[in-house]
Amino acid sequence: MAIFGLWVINKAGGLVYQRNFADGLAQLTSNEYLVLAGTLHGIHAITSRLSPMGSSSGAQVIEGESFKMTILLTVTGTKFVLLTSLAEVSAESTLQKVYEAFADAVMKNPFHTPEMPIRSEGFDTRITALIGSSQTS
């Protein structure tokens, strides 16, 4: 059980926040993360149109052999992506709490520009408290 990393993707597909918490995935350069996030954004847009039953929320979980990618799409189009090990069961609830921290520490911060990279100490602290603590348990 481990949480490897967290991404926040804005509604245009740009990576506005990226942080690693544990080793286990290949280390990438920031440019590669940007490309990956953009790709995921595209894939997500496709998956949301694949449903035969009308509209769909798009991909929620993508699993690989060694990791799991849980995606939370908010009503405003911001995506929270959590990269975890396959056994991690708390990914969804963690993402909800990340969303809450985002609403508090980013959207209520007058020095944050919407859709721009997140540089908020308060958000960093909240995420450390949230994921740092869930790792030890």
Binding site: D104, A105, N109, P110, F111, R119, G122, F123
Partner: peptide
């Protein structure tokens, strides 16, 4: 409570 002042404005107090 929800304000993070950027470093280049560190002396600002809301």
């Amino acid at each position: 409570r929800h304000i993070s002042v950027p470093r280049d404005m560190s002396q600002l107090s809301c």
